[in-house]
C-alpha cells in the first residue's frame, strides 16, 4: 500500500469523528421525542411505561384523522398556489435586465428577515375589517361595507400561509431558471422556436424540478405550521399543527403530542425523498 495515501480505515475513523457528534446532536432530541410517544397520560400524569397505546390513539382517532386530512388538503392548496405564484414571480424577475434582478430578489426575500409573528400580524392587518384589502374593495365600490369573512377562517389561513411561504417557492425556482445557459434559449430560437415554444420545451422542463422542490418545501412548512392558523384561523382554521400544539400546551399531553407529530415527521421524510427523486432525473446523469 502506498504510504502517502491514508488507509480507508483511518478515513472512516475521521469521517465517524466528524459525523457522529453531528448525528447525535440531530437525532438524540428526535429519538427522545419519538420515545415520548410510547408513554401515556393518566390523571394528568405521564406514565413512563412503554406501550403502543398512544400511537394507536394518535393514528386511529377519527377526529385526529379528519383534522389531518383537512390539513393535508390545506397544505396541498397552499403549496400549489405557491408553485404557480412562485413560478410566475421568479420568471418575472428572471426576465428583467440583469441589473434589476438582485434588488428585486432582495425585495422578495426581505420579509424573511422579519419575525414570523410580525408577518402574521401584518397579514391580519391586511385581511381585517379595517384592513388594506377591505379598504381597496370599498374604495373601488366592489363591496358596500367591509367584509369580515377574510379573517378567522380557513381561507384566511390559506392566504396568510401563501403570502408568508411564497419566498420559499420563488427562490429555488429563480435559481433553477438562472442555471439555464443563455445559449440553450438562443439555440431554441435559432432552430425556429418562438417564445412560447421555447418556454414549453426548454425553460419549463429545465426549471420545473427546482420549482417543484420549492413547492414541496412550502407543503411541509404549511403542514406543520400552527402559528398562522392560531392567529388568523379562528375555530374554522383548526389544523393538525394546532392539534399537536394544544397537546403540549392546554391539554398537557406530551405523549400524544409526540405521537401525533410523528405523522408529520413521516410526511416530511416522504416529501424529502420525493424531492430527491425529482432532483436526480436520469438526464442529470
Amino acid at each position: 500500500m502506498n504510504a502517502a495515501r491514508p488507509s480507508p480505515l483511518s478515513g472512516l475513523a475521521v469521517g465517524a469523528a466528524i459525523w457522529a457528534p453531528l448525528l447525535a446532536l440531530i437525532f438524540a432530541p428526535l429519538m427522545s421525542f419519538l420515545i415520548y410517544g410510547f408513554f401515556q397520560v393518566e390523571d394528568n400524569q405521564i406514565q413512563r411505561t412503554l406501550s403502543l397505546e398512544t400511537y394507536r390513539e394518535a393514528l386511529t382517532n377519527p377526529a385526529y384523522m379528519r383534522t389531518f386530512g383537512k390539513t393535508v388538503l390545506l397544505a396541498l392548496q397552499v403549496s400549489l398556489a405557491c408553485l404557480v405564484l412562485g413560478y410566475a414571480t421568479a420568471y418575472f424577475v428572471w426576465r428583467r435586465p440583469a441589473r434589476w434582478r438582485a434588488p428585486l430578489l432582495f425585495l422578495l426575500a426581505a420579509p424573511l428577515l422579519m419575525s414570523y409573528v410580525i408577518r402574521i400580524y401584518a397579514m391580519r392587518g391586511v385581511l381585517g375589517a379595517n384592513g388594506l384589502l377591505n379598504g381597496v374593495l370599498t374604495t373601488l365600490g366592489i363591496v358596500d361595507e367591509p367584509v369580515t369573512a377574510f379573517l378567522f377562517n380557513l381561507t384566511a389561513v390559506k392566504l396568510t400561509l401563501i403570502v408568508i411561504l411564497l419566498p420559499f417557492a420563488t427562490l429555488p425556482t429563480f435559481i433553477a431558471l438562472e442555471r439555464i445557459p443563455a445559449s440553450l434559449l438562443q439555440a431554441s430560437s435559432d432552430l425556429g422556436a418562438g417564445a412560447g415554444r421555447t418556454f414549453r420545451s426548454v425553460v419549463l422542463p429545465l426549471s420545473l424540478p427546482g420549482a417543484t422542490v420549492g413547492a414541496m418545501f412550502t407543503f411541509v412548512l404549511a403542514m406543520g405550521d400552527f402559528l398562522a392558523p392560531e392567529l388568523v384561523g379562528g375555530i374554522d382554521g383548526f389544523t393538525y399543527g394546532r392539534l399537536v400544539f394544544t397537546q403540549f400546551g392546554l391539554a398537557f399531553n406530551w405523549p400524544l403530542g409526540a405521537a401525533l407529530s410523528a405523522l408529520l415527521l413521516a410526511v416530511a421524510l416522504c416529501v424529502v425523498f420525493g424531492a430527491r427523486a425529482i432532483g436526480s432525473a436520469r438526464w442529470r446523469r
Partner: peptide, 27 residues
C-alpha cells in the same frame, strides 16, 4: 440559418434524437 454553438448548447433534458429533431418538431 442555423448555428453550431461553441459550447454545443444541446438540450440536457432531451436525448440525442429529440435534440436533433427539435427544429422539425418546432415546425
Amino acid at each position: 440559418f442555423n448555428t453550431v454553438f461553441q459550447d454545443y448548447a444541446l438540450f440536457p433534458h432531451m436525448n440525442v434524437a429529440q435534440n436533433v429533431g427539435y427544429g422539425l418538431m418546432v415546425r
